[in-house]
């Protein structure tokens, strides 16, 4: 999914660069509400984990591969604003150190994978979590659905950017149909990895999972006020 230099014209790259910079600046302020002494170490680790996960391309149909994006994984584990910071760190390291994703395309890649995939993914997660049971299975189902959709959403956003500022005049429908199928398949891989990782953390430290705060509150109330909880039953 990493956009190289040369796909988008300078005006589009500049626009996404400004958008990315503004979002990161805002996230630096807002992430504070999600991070404390307990959760901050998990945020750094999650970014490192996403970097590792993105290295492992898995094969999908027709000689094509895909890899984890990790936006929903990060947003559910440590919160959406923190996810913007973590994804930006991953994409910055990849672009600067590993020549993966262009430098002039860094703003585009942050916009697609660090902003759009987080916003859409976390929005879907919250929407699904609101209607699903407040159980571990409910949280994981919402996580999987959100992770799946985050990939075609980011792919579609690239199609729109290419329609606006692509360096080759290709009909938008051609780009869209070339992107759609493979990214739906990659979304399945994204969902599988994301559910496995969030499920593992939920199993050992549900209290650390940002997206499971509803569950934590219930557990904490029972732990701390057994009499009140008992009386309420």
């Amino acid at each position: 999914m990493h956009v190289p230099d040369g796909f988008l014209d300078p005006a589009t790259s500049l626009t996404t660069g400004v958008l990315a910079a503004g979002t990161v600046a805002l996230a630096l302020k807002r992430a504070r509400t999600e991070l404390d002494d307990r959760t901050a170490p998990l945020a750094g680790l999650t970014a490192a984990f996403v970097f590792a996960g993105q290295m492992v391309n898995f094969p999908i149909a027709a000689g094509t591969s895909g890899h984890l994006i990790g936006a929903v994984l990060t947003a559910v584990l440590v919160g959406p604003w923190t996810a913007v910071l973590c994804m930006t760190a991953v994409l910055l390291v990849q672009a600067v150190l590993f020549a993966d994703g262009g430098l002039t395309a860094l703003g585009t890649n942050i916009t697609l994978m660090g902003l759009l995939a987080v916003v859409v993914g976390y929005g879907v997660f919250r929407g699904l979590a609101a209607v699903l049971p407040r159980t571990r299975a409910g949280v994981l189902t919402a996580t999987g659905g959100a992770a799946f959709l985050s990939v075609p959403a980011a792919a579609l956003a690239f199609v729109l950017l290419f329609a606006l500022g692509g360096t080759v005049d290709v009909p938008v429908g051609t780009v869209a149909s070339a992107m759609a199928g493979v990214h739906l398949l990659i979304g399945l891989g994204e969902a599988a990895i994301t559910v496995a990782v969030v499920g593992a953390v939920l199993a050992v430290r549900p209290d650390l999972v940002h997206g499971a705060r509803g569950l934590r509150t219930a557990a904490t109330l029972e732990d701390r006020r057994p009499t009140a909880a008992g009386a309420a039953r």
Partner: peptide, 21 residues
Amino acid sequence: DGLEHAAEQAGFSHRAEDSAT
């Protein structure tokens, strides 16, 4: 990957440039 594949199919993969890094 998905994007490279799509770029080949849609005919704009030749525009990819080497990164400055």
